[in-house]
Write a protein that binds this DNA or RNA. Structure first.
Lengths: 160, 160
DNA sequence: GGTTGATATGTTATACTATAACACTTCGTG
DNA sequence: CACGAAGTGTTATAGTATAACATATCAACC
């Protein structure tokens, strides 16, 4: 591994961040009676290694170099499992996936996507505009997608 | 045209809704010195006719039956133009497009997507969780994607 | 021990979504 | 009338995703 990537937009102890997330996923699977198989584990690990969002085919390419699967369904199935279990989030805007920053808590995630460096930071959603509109129209919300695109603090500097 | 589709989730005068939106687009193009060509006009009309989100290839199929273009770039270019001008919004969750419900005002749109009937209602976004997170991290928001999936009032009934 | 069923992976093929690149037309302007 | 800008037509291809079926593994049960 090279330099630790930023999480959120700040430096952090990336090694412990990765191992903590893997341990949390491991424990959650055990508690739920689910299998945390090598493909699933490695897929999560690949996403944890960078805090950028990776496309399914990027993940697949890395799995492939390690002999863990070379065909799209392998990657898509592992990603679907991880998303279902809340260890990974899908970024609709990018058709990509990113490791969850808070796998231990239930949450409606929101994301800030830097168009400069590609880093994706996870925030806690607050349901802003939608909660009100949903209530007045009687719409029953089951899932939300909240994503903002823009520039992170680091990438704002060059523009100035 | 058959029954008017719901806008938001309520019945409305669909004919006037369509013609008003077309007139608004026409006026906006004139004001901005842009061409509201037959392909562009008909593409917007197709989206206005239903308040469901249509995929680019659905739009293309309908353009094709009318001799207005049969190849993907035709539809994608018209849709890109309409999105740029704010007459149409892209629904990331569905890889689909929907006519704007308020083409006259600047707005950050938010959407409620019914997984029962496919209707997409547009609401005004309020930037909920993201504004706070963005400010504390220094992230500069340029665009937001806010989409909720769930059940509209009508589609909640059968489930009960 | 063998059978059965559940879960996961491997593989083929294909569907769906999107854009690059280039040719042609149209039209306004100098 | 030459030129350039904008739009459309077309070919080809890139990128994203899933259906369907084959194989493997393993636990539970008889």
């Amino acid at each position: 591994m090279t330099d630790p990537a930023p999480k959120g937009f700040e430096a952090h102890d990336h090694n412990s961040c990765v191992s903590a997330a893997l341990a949390a996923a491991d424990a959650a699977c055990a508690a739920r009676g689910l299998q945390f198989t090598p493909v699933r584990r490695r897929t999560l690990e690949i996403l944890l290694e960078s805090h950028e969002a990776l496309g399914a085919y990027d993940v697949l390419a890395r799995l492939n170099t390690e002999g863990l699967g070379s065909k799209p369904p392998v990657a898509y199935r592992a990603l679907a499992f991880l998303v279902e279990q809340g260890f990974v989030h899908r970024i609709e805007r990018l058709n990509a996936f990113v490791a969850c920053a808070h796998p231990d808590q239930e949450h409606d995630p929101a994301f800030m996507i830097c168009r400069g460096c590609g880093t994706v930071a996870e925030a806690q959603a607050v349901q802003g505009g939608l909660a009100v509109s949903a209530q007045t129209t009687g719409f029953q919300i089951e899932q939300t997608v909240i994503e903002a695109e823009g520039l992170c603090p680091t990438c704002q500097a060059p523009a100035a």
